[in-house]
Amino acid sequence: MRAEISIKNTKSKFLDKVEELSEQNIYACYQCGKCSAGCPSISEMDISPSEIIRLVQLGGEEEVLNSKTIWVCASCFTCVTRCPKGVDVAKIMEALRQITLRKNVDYVNPLSIPRETLSQVPQIALVSALRKFSG
């Protein structure tokens, strides 16, 4: 199947929203792949970070929001530190998570976390997980 590209997706509201929430210029990315090359989470990702940005450039809203990648990213800032164009990939990932969470769709339902886990993990783990995974 051909992926249709038109002004509808390349100038989409989705792209604007990502740029607004992340305060990043999506077009600044020149697809060098350094973020993907250094990402510690890449083996658990279905789409690499540089491809995520590419898909945002192409207006591929659905693919991006349904990807595992945006949830696997743990905001470790390795990509942010090394990006030659100064693109804050972590902020883009956060924007993508927020776009989903703000539709009242939780990635992890707080009630589904087993009691055992709750008592086992440190508070900082719980608080940050809930901050990142639920609305």
Partner: peptide, 16 residues
Amino acid sequence: KTECCGSYNTVANVDL
């Protein structure tokens, strides 16, 4: 020594 440990994924994605 500067690679991420997986952080809060320890709550819902222990394998990672």
